[in-house]
Simulated scan of single mutants.
Amino acid sequence: MPTLTLADELVLLAHDDAGTNQLGRPRLDYGLVGAVLLDLALAGRVAVADDRLSVTDPTPTGHPVLDDALATLAADGKRRRPKDWMSRLAKGLPDRVLAGLVDRGVLRRESDRVLLVFPRTRYPSPTGAEPAAETAARRRMLDAVAADGPVDARTAALIGLAGAVGLDRTLFREVPKERLTARVAEIAAGDWASAATKKAIEETQAAVLVAITAAATAAIVTTTVS
């Protein structure tokens, strides 16, 4: 099976064993946009300069979801900030990522109705157990947090993204809070990617957090007004 993208790993980590999204929307949507941009940055396709995201290499990566986003970025005539791409790239993204995992047999699609009325779609593992790819991602992240020293670029990016969407609270619940805070900061400051790539990743992770916070604030205001 082809190597999973960061978006694939994030969507697996965000769903429980019953195939239910534990992050909710639009938290997962923005997180997946961030994951796509991080993968493009790690692949040397995009960079951030003067707080603006630009395409540095339009060559396709060979992955449909990444290449669709890359084409959209390349076709845009304006250099935008990473946060400006959150809503633009989020539309339909979770469905495309999940569909790709279903096509590869990592997950299966299960549709039913709650109380015989409300439609529901879940994405459990075909075996009923946690997918091996999810287990591997969890182990990679936990090993990085538990150890000392350097961390590979993909794992460092995924740990930062997990923090941005709030998954770190469950993924690392057995790690003492002070140890987790210190180690995540150490990983973020590590020499695991070029300065340009790290800049793009840091800006993207910040953009995800800003988008999620803005959406949560808007929901609170709407509920209060109503």
Score class of each variant (00 low, 15 high):
residue 135 T to W: 07
residue 108 R to I: 02
residue 126 P to G: 07
residue 130 E to Q: 13
residue 184 V to Q: 15
residue 92 G to F: 06
residue 132 A to I: 12
residue 115 L to W: 15
residue 170 T to M: 08
residue 139 R to K: 13
residue 195 A to Y: 12
residue 110 E to F: 07
residue 133 A to Q: 14
residue 151 V to C: 10
residue 198 K to M: 10
residue 164 A to M: 07
residue 144 A to Y: 07
residue 177 K to F: 04
residue 173 R to D: 00
residue 95 D to N: 15
residue 120 R to Q: 14
residue 139 R to Q: 03
residue 107 L to G: 09
residue 148 D to H: 01
residue 102 V to K: 01
residue 152 D to F: 05
residue 96 R to E: 09
residue 100 G to M: 00
residue 101 L to T: 12
residue 106 V to P: 04
residue 95 D to M: 12
residue 165 V to N: 05
residue 130 E to R: 13
residue 193 A to S: 14
residue 100 G to A: 12
residue 191 D to G: 08
residue 125 S to I: 01
residue 111 S to C: 07
residue 159 I to D: 10
residue 180 L to F: 09
residue 128 G to T: 06
residue 162 A to N: 10
residue 127 T to N: 10
residue 199 K to C: 08
residue 106 V to A: 03
residue 107 L to E: 04
residue 127 T to W: 05
residue 127 T to C: 09
residue 152 D to Y: 09
residue 165 V to Y: 04
residue 199 K to D: 15
residue 113 R to S: 12
residue 193 A to N: 06
residue 175 V to G: 09
residue 123 Y to E: 14
residue 139 R to V: 10
residue 129 A to W: 05
residue 169 R to K: 11
residue 113 R to A: 15
residue 168 D to Q: 10
residue 163 G to Q: 11
residue 165 V to R: 04
residue 102 V to T: 13
residue 186 E to D: 14
residue 107 L to P: 02
residue 106 V to N: 03
residue 182 A to L: 10
residue 146 A to P: 01
residue 132 A to K: 11
residue 116 L to T: 12
residue 178 E to I: 08
residue 145 V to K: 01
residue 150 P to T: 13
residue 125 S to L: 03
residue 163 G to C: 09
residue 140 R to Y: 04
residue 196 A to F: 06
residue 179 R to I: 00
residue 197 T to Q: 11
residue 114 V to T: 15
residue 147 A to N: 03
residue 158 L to G: 04
residue 163 G to Y: 02
residue 184 V to N: 09
residue 152 D to L: 11
residue 166 G to T: 00
residue 134 E to K: 06
residue 158 L to K: 09
residue 136 A to K: 00
residue 172 F to W: 07
residue 138 R to M: 00
residue 121 T to S: 14
residue 162 A to F: 09
residue 103 D to F: 06
residue 153 A to V: 04
residue 109 R to Y: 00
residue 132 A to P: 05
residue 121 T to I: 14
residue 185 A to I: 02
residue 162 A to P: 03
residue 96 R to N: 07
residue 192 W to R: 08
residue 178 E to S: 14
residue 140 R to M: 00
residue 186 E to Y: 01
residue 203 E to T: 00
residue 129 A to T: 02
residue 193 A to L: 06
residue 162 A to S: 15
residue 196 A to P: 06
residue 163 G to S: 05
residue 181 T to E: 14
residue 187 I to C: 08
residue 137 A to H: 04
residue 144 A to Q: 05
residue 170 T to Y: 01
residue 129 A to L: 08
residue 202 E to G: 13
residue 142 L to M: 08
residue 162 A to R: 06
residue 104 R to A: 11
residue 122 R to T: 15
residue 133 A to E: 13
residue 149 G to W: 11
residue 159 I to C: 10
residue 138 R to G: 08
residue 140 R to Q: 03
residue 125 S to W: 08
residue 147 A to G: 09
residue 122 R to D: 05
residue 110 E to W: 08
residue 99 A to M: 06
residue 150 P to G: 13
residue 175 V to N: 10
residue 173 R to S: 07
residue 97 V to P: 13
residue 164 A to N: 05
residue 194 S to P: 03
residue 171 L to N: 03
residue 127 T to Y: 02
residue 195 A to C: 04
residue 112 D to S: 15
residue 203 E to I: 01
residue 166 G to K: 02
residue 175 V to Q: 14
residue 115 L to T: 15
residue 127 T to D: 12
residue 155 T to W: 13
residue 148 D to P: 00
residue 143 D to W: 00
residue 179 R to C: 01
residue 190 G to L: 12
residue 176 P to Q: 03
residue 122 R to G: 10
